[in-house]
Design a protein around this nucleic acid. Structure first.
Length: 154
DNA sequence: GCCAACGTTGGC
DNA sequence: GCCAACGTTGGC
């Protein structure tokens, strides 16, 4: 089983939205590196849910990967903001389903993670904290997964 | 709104 | 294949 971190802008899709819906497609990824991580995901993998580009930035809960990856058909829908006219011929994008697992009692803020990382070498190794890392899908090691859960108030 | 950092595009 | 210009991400 592998672990991941998924970023979402909560104005578009939040952990609360997923809690209500139970299972939702994770689609609209238009970055090759992120897509390739999606393609490595397997059912029962786990992922942290991260809120980005908002007031309260940080990790807010976790989800379970609940499908194999499949083609992101939003790329083929000309009315979708995620439409990509090249996807039909040369550029298939991928999506996956995620199932709500849990919401932290309070957000684990990015600022807090940075503070903790000063004295925690496991957190310090997080890709999320590396300068300039903008990937919306990234792998998390087992060690990092457990470490973050330790700091998250459930 | 600003801007650093990275990704993508396209001319050469 | 290089690289400048442009677009996007995302924290602040």
């Amino acid at each position: 089983m592998a672990y991941w971190l998924l970023k979402s802008e909560p104005d578009d899709f939040s952990i609360g939205d997923l809690k209500n819906k139970k299972v939702e497609p994770w689609n609209g990824i238009r970055n090759y590196q992120a897509r390739n991580f999606i393609r490595k995901m397997k059912p029962d993998d786990k992922a942290f849910f991260y809120h980005s580009s908002c007031k309260a930035i940080g990790i807010v809960g976790s989800v379970r990967i609940s499908s194999d990856y499949y083609e992101d058909t939003l790329a083929l829908d000309s009315s979708s903001p995620y439409y990509d006219e090249r996807a039909l011929i040369e550029n298939p994008w991928s999506a996956i389903d995620v199932e709500f697992e849990n919401m932290f009692e309070s957000i684990l803020p990015l600022s807090r993670l940075k503070e903790l990382a000063v004295h925690d070498h496991v957190l310090a190794s997080l890709d999320l904290l590396k300068k300039g890392n903008r990937l919306s899908v990234m792998p998390i090691t087992t060690e990092q997964w457990q470490c973050i859960f330790k700091y998250a108030a459930l």
